[in-house]
Structures are given as structure tokens and as C-alpha cells.
Design a protein around this nucleic acid. Structure first.
Lengths: 137, 137
DNA sequence: CTGTGTGCAAACTCTTTGCATAAGT
DNA sequence: ACTTATGCAAAGAGTTTGCACACAG
């Protein structure tokens, strides 16, 4: 899971992306610590904090390029922000309404059953299960 | 399902909302035709087309008021637009990536099983299952 | 009458884009 | 060298807000 710089460079090249300073740095931040979900601004903040002064526009570009390469997935949560998920396999999420925070559902033995047929000419890209939480009162 | 004007006025008053011209008209559009999912601009367009020249700001206000009153639900789909759903009970959706279109999953005998415990102090508000579709190629 | 709702336009947030400069191979 | 990526600032989309006028009770 923690990947070396060389691993990352290889991964990027495999995706047809030149391993530039910024892309390597962003990929390290994204994939070094296991599964993460974060918005562009979060990643931008982290990059700047760790001494990689990448621009926000580049962060957006990069996130979408990584998504196109199958290294990230876009999360379906309500709200204005786009969350990217480093775990591209089928798994599910808690979403905390008031904080806009996303948490992985742990060790999901959760199962979705009796999946209906998609309409003619369509196929299932993936399934998002979002369990929306609110603070107990 | 189709509700009379009187029904709608009663429903609004029950929610503490004065049954103004605009709110009644919007409620009629929303609830006359069974389950619907639409963005603010969609509803605004319909209202204007049917000769109710309500402003977009009022449509947003109204949609949020209705949501607060439990008459609508906000859908968790990715993307910049906020979709409101007239069906507030637990049910599920197809989302067509390229068109940003949302469709109800028909007669859902679909089941979500082994729901995990929410974190301490939290309770489940609701569960959204979004089956993302792409065009078969 | 009194208070709430509405409409307009401006403000805001998040995201994307165009173009000159910089970096990768 | 040649090509692709980056950064900046400006544009764009969707949504929210402030305030004067209008309407419902």
C-alpha cells in the first residue's frame, strides 16, 4: 500500500501521464496512507503544507486525470464539493450531514441484493451506497 | 397521488408554510405526477411554462422549505446540481453518468443487508443506493 | 394592519478554461 | 528541441443572500 517513488512513477507512466514533480507529489499524498476521500482543496492544502506549492488548477487537472486512469473514483455525495476516493473498488460510505464528512464503512460485510436489471443498452458502472448519518439527540 | 388544491393548501399549512400562489403552484407541479427528481432549474422552467412566473430564487427557497418540512428529499448524486426527490421513503436510483439523469429503480425488491453500526452518537438518517450506469459499448 | 414571502441583482463557492511560461523526455 | 504540464487570473455554473415591494392572514 505505501508505494515507493519508483512505484508511483511507473504507475503514472503506465497511465500515459508524465511523472512530473506535482503529479508524483500529489500521488504520494493520495496513496501513501491507505484509503482516503478528499476534495480538491483538501489535497491542495496538504500539498502546500508539505512544501509542494502546486496550484489549485493543477490539483483539479490531476485529480481528473487520475480518475480517468482508474486510480481514483468520484464519490456520489450531495453537496457542492466533489470528493475523490482513493479506493476504487466497490465499497460504501457514511456521510455525516452537518459536517460534510465522508467515512468508509468498516469491513463491509454489507451486501446489496437483488440488483435490478439496468435499462436497455446500459451497464452498471458501479454502485454507491451512502448511509447518511445525523447526530443523535 | 394527484392531490387537489385544497389538499395542497392543507399540507402547506400543516408544515407552517403559508399557501402562497407560488408555493401552491410549485407543490402542484411537484406532487401531481407521482415520483419525480428534478433540479431547481427544471422546476423553475416548468413553472414558467405553465404560466407561473416565479423567480429562481423563490424556487430554491421553496424547495428547501419543502425539504425541511419532509415533503422532499435531497438526492446524493455526484455533480454540481442538487436534485430533489418527491419520494421521501427509502428507495433507490439509477444515475446515468453522461446525461446527469436520475431514474427510480423499479419495484425495488433490492435489499441492503448487514447494515453496519453507525459510529458513537450517530443515527442513520437514510440510505441512498445509487447505481451508476454507463452506455454499453 | 403586521408580518411573512417574493423578486431582483449582486455575492459567493466550487470548478473549469485560455494562454503564456516552465519542465519533462 | 519538441511536446506536454503548470500557474495564474478570469470566466462559468449553480446556489445563496440582502433588501425593497407585495401579498396573506
Amino acid at each position: 500500500m505505501g508505494q515507493s517513488g519508483a512505484d508511483i512513477r511507473r504507475k503514472l507512466q503506465g497511465a500515459g501521464l508524465r511523472p512530473t514533480r506535482q503529479r508524483v507529489a500529489l500521488a504520494e499524498l493520495l496513496f501513501a496512507k491507505g484509503d482516503r476521500h478528499l476534495a480538491a482543496e483538501d489535497l491542495h492544502g496538504e500539498a502546500v503544507s508539505s512544501g509542494v506549492p502546486v496550484s489549485l488548477a493543477t490539483v483539479y487537472n490531476t485529480l481528473h486525470q487520475f480518475t480517468g486512469a482508474g486510480m481514483l473514483r468520484i464519490l456520489a455525495v450531495e453537496g457542492t464539493r466533489t470528493y475523490f476516493d482513493t479506493n476504487t473498488s466497490d465499497h460504501h460510505h457514511f456521510y455525516i450531514e452537518d459536517e460534510g464528512e465522508v467515512i468508509d464503512v468498516p469491513v463491509s460485510n454489507l451486501k446489496v441484493e437483488n440488483l435490478p436489471e439496468p435499462p436497455e443498452g446500459m451497464e452498471v458502472a458501479n454502485i454507491d451506497v451512502v448511509i447518511r448519518l445525523r447526530r443523535k439527540r
